[in-house]
Design a binder for these strands. Structure first.
Lengths: 223, 223
DNA sequence: TGACAATTCAAACAACTGTTTTATACAGTT
DNA sequence: AACTGTATAAAACAGTTGTTTGAATTGTCA
Protein backbone atom coordinates (compact mmCIF):
# COMPACT_ATOMS: atom_id res chain seq x y z
CA UNK A 1 0.00 0.00 0.00
CA UNK A 2 2.03 2.92 -1.30
CA UNK A 3 0.96 6.02 -3.16
CA UNK A 4 -1.80 3.89 -4.64
CA UNK A 5 -4.69 6.11 -3.59
CA UNK A 6 -3.33 8.94 -5.72
CA UNK A 7 -4.34 7.85 -9.20
CA UNK A 8 -7.31 5.86 -7.97
CA UNK A 9 -8.83 9.01 -6.53
CA UNK A 10 -7.93 11.12 -9.54
CA UNK A 11 -9.65 8.62 -11.82
CA UNK A 12 -12.66 8.57 -9.53
CA UNK A 13 -12.92 12.35 -9.56
CA UNK A 14 -12.54 12.60 -13.31
CA UNK A 15 -15.12 9.86 -13.81
CA UNK A 16 -17.65 11.55 -11.57
CA UNK A 17 -17.36 14.77 -13.51
CA UNK A 18 -17.46 13.18 -16.96
CA UNK A 19 -20.19 10.65 -16.21
CA UNK A 20 -22.34 13.43 -14.79
CA UNK A 21 -21.79 15.57 -17.85
CA UNK A 22 -22.27 13.01 -20.60
CA UNK A 23 -23.65 9.82 -19.10
CA UNK A 24 -22.05 6.41 -18.86
CA UNK A 25 -22.09 5.38 -22.49
CA UNK A 26 -20.72 8.49 -24.13
CA UNK A 27 -17.67 8.76 -21.88
CA UNK A 28 -14.69 6.66 -22.89
CA UNK A 29 -12.19 5.09 -20.55
CA UNK A 30 -9.44 6.86 -22.43
CA UNK A 31 -11.02 10.25 -21.84
CA UNK A 32 -11.38 9.62 -18.12
CA UNK A 33 -7.75 8.60 -17.86
CA UNK A 34 -6.59 11.52 -19.94
CA UNK A 35 -8.39 13.96 -17.64
CA UNK A 36 -7.09 12.11 -14.58
CA UNK A 37 -3.57 12.03 -15.97
CA UNK A 38 -3.48 8.27 -15.59
CA UNK A 39 -2.82 5.30 -17.78
CA UNK A 40 -5.60 3.62 -19.75
CA UNK A 41 -5.19 0.42 -17.80
CA UNK A 42 -5.73 2.11 -14.45
CA UNK A 43 -9.50 1.79 -14.70
CA UNK A 44 -9.33 -1.96 -15.11
CA UNK A 45 -6.67 -2.29 -12.47
CA UNK A 46 -8.42 -0.30 -9.75
CA UNK A 47 -12.08 -0.87 -10.62
CA UNK A 48 -12.09 -4.18 -12.52
CA UNK A 49 -13.84 -2.60 -15.51
CA UNK A 50 -15.57 0.57 -16.70
CA UNK A 51 -18.83 -0.37 -15.06
CA UNK A 52 -17.11 -1.04 -11.76
CA UNK A 53 -15.84 2.51 -11.84
CA UNK A 54 -19.31 3.78 -12.66
CA UNK A 55 -20.85 1.82 -9.83
CA UNK A 56 -18.33 3.28 -7.39
CA UNK A 57 -19.20 6.79 -8.55
CA UNK A 58 -22.91 6.05 -8.21
CA UNK A 59 -22.44 4.83 -4.65
CA UNK A 60 -21.18 8.18 -3.44
CA UNK A 61 -24.06 9.83 -5.27
CA UNK A 62 -26.55 7.60 -3.49
CA UNK A 63 -25.07 8.62 -0.14
CA UNK A 64 -25.59 12.28 -1.01
CA UNK A 65 -29.17 11.69 -2.11
CA UNK A 66 -30.06 9.86 1.07
CA UNK A 67 -28.52 12.65 3.09
CA UNK A 68 -30.70 15.18 1.27
CA UNK A 69 -33.88 13.32 2.11
CA UNK A 70 -32.73 12.92 5.69
CA UNK A 71 -31.93 16.63 6.01
CA UNK A 72 -35.37 17.55 4.70
CA UNK A 73 -37.01 15.15 7.11
CA UNK A 74 -35.14 16.59 10.08
CA UNK A 75 -35.85 20.17 9.06
CA UNK A 76 -39.58 19.53 9.17
CA UNK A 77 -39.66 17.34 12.26
CA UNK A 78 -42.59 18.07 14.55
CA UNK A 79 -44.08 20.67 12.23
CA UNK A 80 -47.36 20.57 10.28
CA UNK A 81 -47.40 18.69 6.99
CA UNK A 82 -47.63 21.78 4.84
CA UNK A 83 -44.52 23.21 6.48
CA UNK A 84 -42.73 19.90 5.96
CA UNK A 85 -43.47 20.14 2.27
CA UNK A 86 -42.10 23.68 2.15
CA UNK A 87 -38.91 22.54 3.84
CA UNK A 88 -38.55 19.56 1.56
CA UNK A 89 -38.88 21.54 -1.65
CA UNK A 90 -36.51 24.24 -0.45
CA UNK A 91 -33.79 21.87 0.74
CA UNK A 92 -34.19 19.54 -2.20
CA UNK A 93 -33.91 22.35 -4.72
CA UNK A 94 -30.92 23.96 -3.05
CA UNK A 95 -29.02 20.68 -3.03
CA UNK A 96 -30.17 19.98 -6.55
CA UNK A 97 -28.99 23.25 -7.99
CA UNK A 98 -26.15 24.55 -5.87
CA UNK A 99 -22.97 24.17 -7.94
CA UNK A 100 -20.94 21.30 -6.54
CA UNK A 101 -23.64 18.84 -5.60
CA UNK A 102 -25.06 19.62 -8.98
CA UNK A 103 -23.02 17.03 -10.84
CA UNK A 104 -24.14 14.25 -8.56
CA UNK A 105 -27.77 14.94 -9.26
CA UNK A 106 -27.10 15.08 -12.97
CA UNK A 107 -25.56 11.65 -12.68
CA UNK A 108 -28.77 10.27 -11.24
CA UNK A 109 -30.76 11.96 -13.95
CA UNK A 110 -28.74 10.12 -16.58
CA UNK A 111 -29.23 6.85 -14.83
CA UNK A 112 -32.99 7.36 -14.68
CA UNK A 113 -33.15 8.24 -18.34
CA UNK A 114 -30.83 5.56 -19.66
CA UNK A 115 -30.70 2.91 -16.96
CA UNK A 116 -27.79 0.59 -16.29
CA UNK A 117 -27.86 -2.56 -14.17
CA UNK A 118 -27.18 -0.28 -11.20
CA UNK A 119 -30.65 1.22 -11.43
CA UNK A 120 -32.14 -1.04 -8.79
CA UNK A 121 -29.75 0.13 -6.12
CA UNK A 122 -30.54 3.77 -6.85
CA UNK A 123 -34.27 3.24 -6.74
CA UNK A 124 -34.20 1.19 -3.57
CA UNK A 125 -31.64 3.19 -1.62
CA UNK A 126 -32.13 6.75 -2.82
CA UNK A 127 -35.42 7.32 -4.60
CA UNK A 128 -37.80 5.12 -2.64
CA UNK A 129 -37.08 6.76 0.74
CA UNK A 130 -37.62 10.17 -0.78
CA UNK A 131 -40.89 9.20 -2.46
CA UNK A 132 -42.15 7.48 0.66
CA UNK A 133 -41.43 10.53 2.78
CA UNK A 134 -43.10 12.84 0.29
CA UNK A 135 -46.10 10.53 0.05
CA UNK A 136 -46.41 10.55 3.81
CA UNK A 137 -46.30 14.34 3.95
CA UNK A 138 -48.79 14.80 1.13
CA UNK A 139 -51.09 12.16 2.56
CA UNK A 140 -51.32 14.07 5.82
CA UNK A 141 -51.87 17.33 3.94
CA UNK A 142 -54.86 16.12 1.98
CA UNK A 143 -56.03 13.56 4.51
CA UNK A 144 -55.61 10.38 2.52
CA UNK A 145 -53.68 7.17 2.78
CA UNK A 146 -50.08 7.37 1.57
CA UNK A 147 -50.89 4.73 -1.04
CA UNK A 148 -53.85 6.64 -2.47
CA UNK A 149 -53.62 7.34 -6.18
CA UNK A 150 -54.23 11.05 -5.65
CA UNK A 151 -51.30 11.13 -3.25
CA UNK A 152 -48.96 9.33 -5.62
CA UNK A 153 -49.92 11.56 -8.53
CA UNK A 154 -49.39 14.63 -6.41
CA UNK A 155 -45.96 13.38 -5.40
CA UNK A 156 -45.15 12.83 -9.06
CA UNK A 157 -46.29 16.37 -9.84
CA UNK A 158 -44.06 17.83 -7.15
CA UNK A 159 -41.02 15.78 -8.06
CA UNK A 160 -41.29 16.37 -11.78
CA UNK A 161 -41.38 20.12 -11.27
CA UNK A 162 -38.28 20.07 -9.09
CA UNK A 163 -36.32 17.76 -11.33
CA UNK A 164 -37.08 19.86 -14.38
CA UNK A 165 -34.77 22.50 -12.95
CA UNK A 166 -31.79 20.18 -13.09
CA UNK A 167 -29.01 21.62 -15.24
CA UNK A 168 -29.77 19.25 -18.08
CA UNK A 169 -30.49 20.38 -21.60
CA UNK A 170 -34.13 20.24 -20.54
CA UNK A 171 -36.28 23.14 -19.47
CA UNK A 172 -35.65 25.52 -17.95
CA UNK A 173 -31.87 25.34 -17.87
CA UNK A 174 -29.39 24.90 -20.63
CA UNK A 175 -29.52 25.16 -24.36
CA UNK A 176 -33.26 24.80 -24.87
CA UNK A 177 -34.11 27.23 -22.14
CA UNK A 178 -31.77 29.83 -23.56
CA UNK A 179 -33.38 29.53 -26.96
CA UNK A 180 -36.79 30.00 -25.39
CA UNK A 181 -35.89 33.11 -23.44
CA UNK A 182 -35.57 31.48 -20.07
CA UNK A 183 -32.63 32.54 -18.00
CA UNK A 184 -31.64 30.97 -14.74
CA UNK A 185 -28.43 31.39 -12.81
CA UNK A 186 -28.29 29.08 -9.81
CA UNK A 187 -27.61 31.81 -7.27
CA UNK A 188 -29.08 31.30 -3.79
CA UNK A 189 -31.61 34.07 -4.45
CA UNK A 190 -32.79 32.54 -7.71
CA UNK A 191 -32.99 29.08 -6.21
CA UNK A 192 -35.11 30.54 -3.44
CA UNK A 193 -37.38 32.15 -5.98
CA UNK A 194 -37.88 28.88 -7.83
CA UNK A 195 -38.44 27.04 -4.57
CA UNK A 196 -41.09 29.57 -3.60
CA UNK A 197 -42.80 29.15 -6.96
CA UNK A 198 -42.86 25.34 -6.80
CA UNK A 199 -43.99 25.47 -3.18
CA UNK A 200 -46.85 27.88 -3.81
CA UNK A 201 -47.87 26.03 -6.97
CA UNK A 202 -47.70 22.60 -5.38
CA UNK A 203 -49.41 23.35 -2.08
CA UNK A 204 -52.36 24.91 -3.84
CA UNK A 205 -52.37 22.05 -6.35
CA UNK A 206 -52.26 19.40 -3.65
CA UNK A 207 -55.15 20.89 -1.71
CA UNK A 208 -57.18 21.22 -4.90
CA UNK A 209 -56.55 17.58 -5.78
CA UNK A 210 -57.57 16.64 -2.25
CA UNK A 211 -60.80 18.61 -2.49
CA UNK A 212 -61.62 17.32 -5.98
CA UNK A 213 -61.31 13.71 -4.90
CA UNK A 214 -63.40 14.29 -1.83
CA UNK A 215 -66.28 15.99 -3.62
CA UNK A 216 -66.25 13.20 -6.19
CA UNK A 217 -66.89 10.81 -3.36
CA UNK A 218 -63.52 9.10 -2.84
CA UNK A 219 -62.89 7.60 0.54
CA UNK A 220 -61.23 9.83 3.11
CA UNK A 221 -58.34 8.83 5.27
CA UNK A 222 -59.07 6.14 7.79
CA UNK A 223 -59.40 7.40 11.35
CA UNK B 1 -37.39 5.43 -59.98
CA UNK B 2 -38.64 1.93 -59.43
CA UNK B 3 -39.36 0.07 -56.24
CA UNK B 4 -36.90 2.40 -54.60
CA UNK B 5 -39.38 3.59 -52.01
CA UNK B 6 -39.65 0.07 -50.65
CA UNK B 7 -36.45 -0.28 -48.70
CA UNK B 8 -36.15 3.44 -48.07
CA UNK B 9 -39.47 3.41 -46.25
CA UNK B 10 -38.72 0.21 -44.41
CA UNK B 11 -35.46 1.68 -43.13
CA UNK B 12 -37.28 4.85 -42.14
CA UNK B 13 -39.90 2.94 -40.18
CA UNK B 14 -37.36 0.76 -38.42
CA UNK B 15 -35.27 3.79 -37.57
CA UNK B 16 -38.21 5.65 -36.09
CA UNK B 17 -39.04 2.74 -33.82
CA UNK B 18 -35.48 2.08 -32.72
CA UNK B 19 -34.42 5.69 -32.29
CA UNK B 20 -37.52 6.29 -30.18
CA UNK B 21 -36.76 3.29 -28.02
CA UNK B 22 -33.04 3.74 -27.43
CA UNK B 23 -32.00 7.16 -28.70
CA UNK B 24 -29.70 8.06 -31.56
CA UNK B 25 -26.38 6.94 -30.16
CA UNK B 26 -27.28 3.52 -28.85
CA UNK B 27 -28.89 2.34 -32.09
CA UNK B 28 -26.52 0.96 -34.71
CA UNK B 29 -26.93 1.22 -38.44
CA UNK B 30 -26.63 -2.53 -38.66
CA UNK B 31 -29.53 -3.05 -36.25
CA UNK B 32 -31.77 -0.68 -38.18
CA UNK B 33 -31.01 -2.46 -41.41
CA UNK B 34 -31.49 -5.87 -39.85
CA UNK B 35 -34.95 -4.87 -38.60
CA UNK B 36 -35.76 -3.30 -41.95
CA UNK B 37 -34.47 -6.31 -43.83
CA UNK B 38 -32.15 -4.12 -45.84
CA UNK B 39 -28.46 -4.01 -46.57
CA UNK B 40 -26.07 -2.11 -44.29
CA UNK B 41 -25.20 0.30 -47.07
CA UNK B 42 -28.81 1.33 -47.65
CA UNK B 43 -28.65 3.97 -44.92
CA UNK B 44 -25.73 5.71 -46.56
CA UNK B 45 -27.21 5.34 -50.00
CA UNK B 46 -30.67 6.72 -49.20
CA UNK B 47 -29.89 9.13 -46.36
CA UNK B 48 -26.23 10.04 -46.89
CA UNK B 49 -25.30 8.96 -43.34
CA UNK B 50 -26.78 7.84 -40.03
CA UNK B 51 -27.49 11.37 -38.95
CA UNK B 52 -29.29 12.15 -42.21
CA UNK B 53 -31.63 9.28 -41.44
CA UNK B 54 -32.14 10.55 -37.91
CA UNK B 55 -32.91 14.04 -39.16
CA UNK B 56 -35.52 12.66 -41.54
CA UNK B 57 -37.18 10.76 -38.71
CA UNK B 58 -37.16 13.87 -36.54
CA UNK B 59 -38.85 15.90 -39.26
CA UNK B 60 -41.96 13.75 -39.22
CA UNK B 61 -41.97 13.94 -35.43
CA UNK B 62 -41.88 17.72 -35.58
CA UNK B 63 -44.91 17.72 -37.86
CA UNK B 64 -46.84 15.64 -35.33
CA UNK B 65 -45.84 17.90 -32.46
CA UNK B 66 -46.94 21.04 -34.29
CA UNK B 67 -50.22 19.37 -35.11
CA UNK B 68 -50.80 18.61 -31.44
CA UNK B 69 -50.31 22.23 -30.43
CA UNK B 70 -52.56 23.33 -33.26
CA UNK B 71 -55.29 20.89 -32.25
CA UNK B 72 -55.18 22.13 -28.66
CA UNK B 73 -55.35 25.72 -29.83
CA UNK B 74 -58.39 25.04 -32.01
CA UNK B 75 -60.16 23.08 -29.27
CA UNK B 76 -60.00 26.05 -26.95
CA UNK B 77 -60.74 28.77 -29.46
CA UNK B 78 -63.06 31.45 -28.17
CA UNK B 79 -63.25 29.97 -24.70
CA UNK B 80 -61.98 31.35 -21.38
CA UNK B 81 -58.31 30.86 -20.57
CA UNK B 82 -58.91 28.29 -17.88
CA UNK B 83 -60.89 26.14 -20.27
CA UNK B 84 -58.15 26.50 -22.87
CA UNK B 85 -55.68 25.13 -20.36
CA UNK B 86 -57.96 22.18 -19.63
CA UNK B 87 -58.21 21.42 -23.32
CA UNK B 88 -54.50 21.72 -23.83
CA UNK B 89 -53.55 19.35 -21.04
CA UNK B 90 -56.15 16.80 -22.09
CA UNK B 91 -55.23 16.81 -25.76
CA UNK B 92 -51.51 16.97 -25.09
CA UNK B 93 -51.60 14.03 -22.71
CA UNK B 94 -53.75 11.90 -24.95
CA UNK B 95 -51.40 12.40 -27.87
CA UNK B 96 -48.44 11.92 -25.60
CA UNK B 97 -49.58 8.62 -24.19
CA UNK B 98 -51.85 6.95 -26.70
CA UNK B 99 -49.90 4.02 -28.13
CA UNK B 100 -48.81 4.86 -31.64
CA UNK B 101 -47.96 8.53 -31.33
CA UNK B 102 -46.12 7.48 -28.23
CA UNK B 103 -42.86 6.62 -29.99
CA UNK B 104 -42.67 10.02 -31.62
CA UNK B 105 -42.84 11.79 -28.31
CA UNK B 106 -40.24 9.51 -26.85
CA UNK B 107 -37.98 10.48 -29.72
CA UNK B 108 -38.25 14.12 -28.75
CA UNK B 109 -37.61 13.26 -25.16
CA UNK B 110 -34.30 11.65 -26.12
CA UNK B 111 -33.32 14.63 -28.19
CA UNK B 112 -34.02 16.98 -25.30
CA UNK B 113 -31.99 14.90 -22.91
CA UNK B 114 -29.05 14.16 -25.18
CA UNK B 115 -29.15 16.79 -27.88
CA UNK B 116 -27.87 16.40 -31.40
CA UNK B 117 -27.22 19.21 -33.90
CA UNK B 118 -30.89 18.87 -34.86
CA UNK B 119 -31.98 20.32 -31.53
CA UNK B 120 -32.41 23.84 -32.85
CA UNK B 121 -35.00 22.79 -35.39
CA UNK B 122 -37.03 20.98 -32.76
CA UNK B 123 -36.98 23.89 -30.36
CA UNK B 124 -37.86 26.47 -33.00
CA UNK B 125 -40.48 24.52 -34.90
CA UNK B 126 -42.10 22.32 -32.27
CA UNK B 127 -41.41 23.43 -28.72
CA UNK B 128 -41.45 27.19 -29.03
CA UNK B 129 -44.98 27.38 -30.49
CA UNK B 130 -46.25 25.16 -27.72
CA UNK B 131 -44.57 27.15 -24.97
CA UNK B 132 -45.73 30.45 -26.44
CA UNK B 133 -49.31 29.27 -26.61
CA UNK B 134 -49.21 27.96 -23.06
CA UNK B 135 -47.60 31.19 -21.85
CA UNK B 136 -50.37 33.18 -23.51
CA UNK B 137 -53.07 31.07 -21.89
CA UNK B 138 -51.50 31.19 -18.45
CA UNK B 139 -50.84 34.92 -18.74
CA UNK B 140 -54.53 35.56 -19.32
CA UNK B 141 -55.45 33.25 -16.46
CA UNK B 142 -53.36 35.05 -13.87
CA UNK B 143 -53.48 38.47 -15.49
CA UNK B 144 -49.82 38.98 -16.29
CA UNK B 145 -47.69 39.55 -19.34
CA UNK B 146 -46.76 36.38 -21.23
CA UNK B 147 -43.09 37.18 -20.56
CA UNK B 148 -43.56 37.50 -16.81
CA UNK B 149 -41.36 35.19 -14.76
CA UNK B 150 -44.31 33.82 -12.84
CA UNK B 151 -45.95 32.89 -16.14
CA UNK B 152 -42.86 31.16 -17.48
CA UNK B 153 -42.35 29.22 -14.26
CA UNK B 154 -45.96 28.15 -14.29
CA UNK B 155 -45.63 26.97 -17.86
CA UNK B 156 -42.57 24.99 -16.85
CA UNK B 157 -44.51 23.45 -13.98
CA UNK B 158 -47.33 22.38 -16.26
CA UNK B 159 -45.09 20.99 -18.95
CA UNK B 160 -42.82 19.09 -16.60
CA UNK B 161 -45.78 17.33 -15.04
CA UNK B 162 -47.13 16.26 -18.41
CA UNK B 163 -43.80 15.12 -19.76
CA UNK B 164 -43.09 13.05 -16.68
CA UNK B 165 -45.81 10.67 -17.86
CA UNK B 166 -43.92 9.84 -21.02
CA UNK B 167 -43.17 6.13 -21.29
CA UNK B 168 -39.53 6.62 -20.39
CA UNK B 169 -37.80 4.81 -17.58
CA UNK B 170 -38.68 7.85 -15.49
CA UNK B 171 -41.60 8.24 -13.15
CA UNK B 172 -44.34 7.25 -13.26
CA UNK B 173 -43.99 4.78 -16.10
CA UNK B 174 -41.53 2.04 -16.70
CA UNK B 175 -39.02 0.23 -14.57
CA UNK B 176 -38.63 2.75 -11.79
CA UNK B 177 -42.33 3.27 -11.42
CA UNK B 178 -42.93 -0.45 -11.19
CA UNK B 179 -40.36 -0.77 -8.45
CA UNK B 180 -42.04 2.03 -6.56
CA UNK B 181 -45.52 0.58 -6.75
CA UNK B 182 -46.84 2.88 -9.43
CA UNK B 183 -48.89 1.28 -12.12
CA UNK B 184 -50.12 2.99 -15.22
CA UNK B 185 -51.62 1.47 -18.31
CA UNK B 186 -52.21 4.06 -21.03
CA UNK B 187 -55.87 3.27 -21.52
CA UNK B 188 -58.14 6.19 -22.46
CA UNK B 189 -59.71 6.09 -19.00
CA UNK B 190 -56.37 6.21 -17.21
CA UNK B 191 -55.10 8.98 -19.45
CA UNK B 192 -58.23 10.93 -18.64
CA UNK B 193 -57.64 10.42 -14.94
CA UNK B 194 -54.08 11.70 -15.19
CA UNK B 195 -55.21 14.63 -17.30
CA UNK B 196 -57.80 15.53 -14.68
CA UNK B 197 -55.18 15.34 -11.96
CA UNK B 198 -52.69 17.57 -13.76
CA UNK B 199 -55.46 19.97 -14.73
CA UNK B 200 -56.80 20.31 -11.20
CA UNK B 201 -53.33 20.55 -9.73
CA UNK B 202 -52.10 23.07 -12.27
CA UNK B 203 -55.10 25.39 -12.36
CA UNK B 204 -55.08 25.74 -8.59
CA UNK B 205 -51.31 26.14 -8.67
CA UNK B 206 -51.42 28.79 -11.37
CA UNK B 207 -54.01 30.89 -9.55
CA UNK B 208 -52.05 30.59 -6.33
CA UNK B 209 -48.88 31.77 -8.03
CA UNK B 210 -50.82 34.64 -9.52
CA UNK B 211 -52.19 35.67 -6.14
CA UNK B 212 -48.84 35.28 -4.39
CA UNK B 213 -47.10 37.57 -6.84
CA UNK B 214 -49.83 40.16 -6.60
CA UNK B 215 -49.87 40.36 -2.82
CA UNK B 216 -46.11 40.70 -2.85
CA UNK B 217 -46.55 43.79 -4.96
CA UNK B 218 -45.51 42.67 -8.44
CA UNK B 219 -46.87 44.62 -11.35
CA UNK B 220 -50.17 43.47 -12.77
CA UNK B 221 -50.90 43.03 -16.43
CA UNK B 222 -50.79 46.17 -18.47
CA UNK B 223 -54.22 47.55 -19.44
C1' DT C 1 -33.65 -6.78 -76.99
C1' DG C 2 -29.91 -3.76 -75.49
C1' DA C 3 -28.19 0.13 -73.28
C1' DC C 4 -28.44 2.85 -69.06
C1' DA C 5 -29.09 4.46 -64.67
C1' DA C 6 -30.79 3.35 -60.17
C1' DT C 7 -30.61 0.16 -56.55
C1' DT C 8 -28.93 -3.72 -53.75
C1' DC C 9 -25.42 -6.56 -51.97
C1' DA C 10 -21.21 -8.78 -49.80
C1' DA C 11 -17.00 -7.47 -48.41
C1' DA C 12 -13.69 -4.66 -46.67
C1' DC C 13 -12.01 -0.27 -44.42
C1' DA C 14 -10.49 2.87 -40.94
C1' DA C 15 -11.44 4.57 -36.59
C1' DC C 16 -12.66 3.75 -32.03
C1' DT C 17 -14.14 0.94 -28.05
C1' DG C 18 -13.04 -1.68 -23.45
C1' DT C 19 -9.78 -4.80 -22.07
C1' DT C 20 -5.49 -7.58 -21.64
C1' DT C 21 -0.81 -8.34 -21.86
C1' DT C 22 3.91 -7.71 -20.78
C1' DA C 23 7.42 -5.17 -18.77
C1' DT C 24 9.21 -1.91 -15.41
C1' DA C 25 9.59 0.74 -11.08
C1' DC C 26 8.98 0.83 -6.31
C1' DA C 27 7.62 -0.25 -1.62
C1' DG C 28 8.40 -3.19 2.56
C1' DT C 29 10.11 -7.72 4.41
C1' DT C 30 13.27 -11.42 5.13
C1' DA D 1 20.82 -8.27 -1.40
C1' DA D 2 17.03 -11.10 -2.84
C1' DC D 3 12.15 -11.69 -2.64
C1' DT D 4 7.22 -10.18 -2.78
C1' DG D 5 3.25 -7.81 -3.83
C1' DT D 6 1.51 -3.33 -5.62
C1' DA D 7 1.25 0.34 -8.97
C1' DT D 8 2.13 2.38 -13.42
C1' DA D 9 3.28 2.28 -18.26
C1' DA D 10 3.32 1.28 -23.39
C1' DA D 11 1.68 -1.67 -26.55
C1' DA D 12 -1.28 -4.70 -28.55
C1' DC D 13 -5.84 -7.24 -28.82
C1' DA D 14 -10.49 -8.36 -30.17
C1' DG D 15 -14.81 -6.51 -31.05
C1' DT D 16 -17.89 -2.95 -32.81
C1' DT D 17 -18.85 1.24 -35.07
C1' DG D 18 -20.16 4.17 -39.41
C1' DT D 19 -18.80 4.27 -43.93
C1' DT D 20 -16.97 3.04 -48.57
C1' DT D 21 -16.04 0.13 -52.36
C1' DG D 22 -16.96 -2.38 -56.51
C1' DA D 23 -19.52 -5.85 -58.46
C1' DA D 24 -24.17 -7.77 -59.22
C1' DT D 25 -28.98 -7.00 -59.87
C1' DT D 26 -33.02 -4.61 -61.05
C1' DG D 27 -36.22 -1.82 -63.58
C1' DT D 28 -37.01 1.54 -67.44
C1' DC D 29 -36.87 3.33 -71.80
C1' DA D 30 -34.94 3.57 -76.58
Amino acid sequence: MTGEAETRDRVLAAAEQLFAEHGFRKVTVREICRVAGANVASVNYHFRDKFGLYREVLHSAIVVMRATTEAARKAGQGRPAEEQLRQFISIYLHRLLTPGHESIQRLIHWELHDPSPALDEIVDQAIRPRIEYLADVVARMIERDPGDEAVLRTVASIQSQSNSYLPSPLLPHGQIARRLGFQFEPTPANIDAVARHITTFSIAGAYAVGRAGRTRGRRRRKG
